[in-house]
Design a protein around this nucleic acid. Sequence first.
RNA 1: GGCAUCGUGGCCGAGUGGCUAGGCACAGCUCUGCAAAAGCUUGUACAGCGGUUCGAAUCCGCUCGAUGCCUCCA
Length: 493
Amino acid sequence: MQLYKNQQLKVHNSLSGKKEPFEPINEGHIGMYVCGPTVYSNVHLGNCRTFMSFDMIFRYFKHLGYKVRYVRNITDAGHLENDADEGEDKIAKKAKLEQIEPMEVVQRYTVDFHNTLQQFNFLPPSIEPTATGHIIEQIEIIKEIIDNGFAYEINGSVYFDVIKFNETNDYGKLSGRKLEDMIANTRELTAQSEKRNPQDFALWKKAEPQHIMRWPSPWGDGFPGWHLECTAMSTKYLGETFDIHGGGMDLKFPHHECEIAQSEASSGKSPVKYWLHANMLTLNGKKMSKSTGNNIYPSEIITGENDILSKAYSASVVRFFMMQAHYTSILDLSDEALLASEKGYYRLMDGMDNVSKLNTGASSDFDVKSWLQKCYDAMNDDFNTPILISQLFEAVKHINLIKEGKESITEADKTLLQNTMTTFVHEILGIENQAAAEDNSQTLSGVVELLIGLRNEARSNKDFATSDKIRDELIALGIQLKDGKDGTTFSLK
RNA sequence: GGCAUCGUGGCCGAGUGGCUAGGCACAGCUCUGCAAAAGCUUGUACAGCGGUUCGAAUCCGCUCGAUGCCUCCA
């Protein structure tokens, strides 16, 4: 189904700073590149949020019927610790620290990355290329940039000539910076640099003898600069110009700015039609930082083994929490906020469980069709998941009213409602019903039904001590009884 | 210091020149043996100070504060 023909999507393009109608370069097809993690430590919760935003975007594109090629790289080499001069590879540093091979570091944290994303119900990207697997492609781009006169070699290293580039192109157009300002604000460099100008960045760095990760090149043994891999891999798999490039806000400068420069300097074309940037996640109102202890890992939230939160929260709740904020807004994670989201999450899940049980009638008090379009309108407005969720709660309200017999719904509307809820919650937001998936087994419901029966017996005998005991001890086990007009049901908390 | 994003009711979080976000919490009511669950009702908020306008929380300026990048940190 090519839904995209009927839904006009708008996206916030960081390049223009405006919301623009989304029109892919090739009709029906989308190329999307997202900067993936550097696998030198456990994946950070803030990274998870960024990737989750793009996972949702990927899901929505697919839902609209686009054929999407989603490329998310793994950075397993090449990122220097700083851009100045004498940098060390983050991975090489970690390898030294742990006394293992660099590729062991890479393997360990790539596995952690995949495991974590799986817990949060991520869809795998179409291609997940690695930097070390594309050294040749990176070297080829450097050659092109040198041939076009925008890079120079010194002592086995190659640098991008930003000032030269800025004469014919606009360096800083993405991040709103002006080269003159950057030059004026440059600080004194402590180490002497072989770069012509401090703004220049490395395309290829010569490997010192002790450097473990190294590859041969026309300029001697070395390793690629930190912005080059994304240019090489996005060009290889998506072409010189593609639709969407995403990443965290923190990558806007210099990383994405340099990517634009590299592409324009090699192919002569601006690489990306729409730049999308996901905003940061803070913890208790402050930035996350390992050094101050204001930091939490995804696994620590799920297990509850941390000093920051009062309890454990399921991956589904965390995902729901993140989807309640717009991807371009800073989101603050706190115990209070998670607690509130958890309750809302269960309310939504209960609502979804109840749809199938609704009795149908001759007419509908709930205009499902116009509600459905409101859901699309929310997503079409730059993937506004908070508004979508508010619409989902609107539906929950009607579901509950129908359940209580205060409103009615036709069979056709009920089916449409059920399908739409499933589509938006599970397929697009990627939120699962964790409790139901985990242990809502036949045996359990049989046992609880039995207890409900015993409790009702006690109640009709006015033996409230017994009936309350059953109710209270079940709630202590996480099973909530719900007394309604048509008897008692239960749900897991 | 520069650039960027932002500052919304008790909390989280949308929106944006005049008209309802939503969730959680709180209160009242309905329901109940009492509760819980569910439903209904209520909240007139938009950092501060100026300016533009018939009208601004929404536009402009300044101030303060937060977060990100520029510098190791996601």
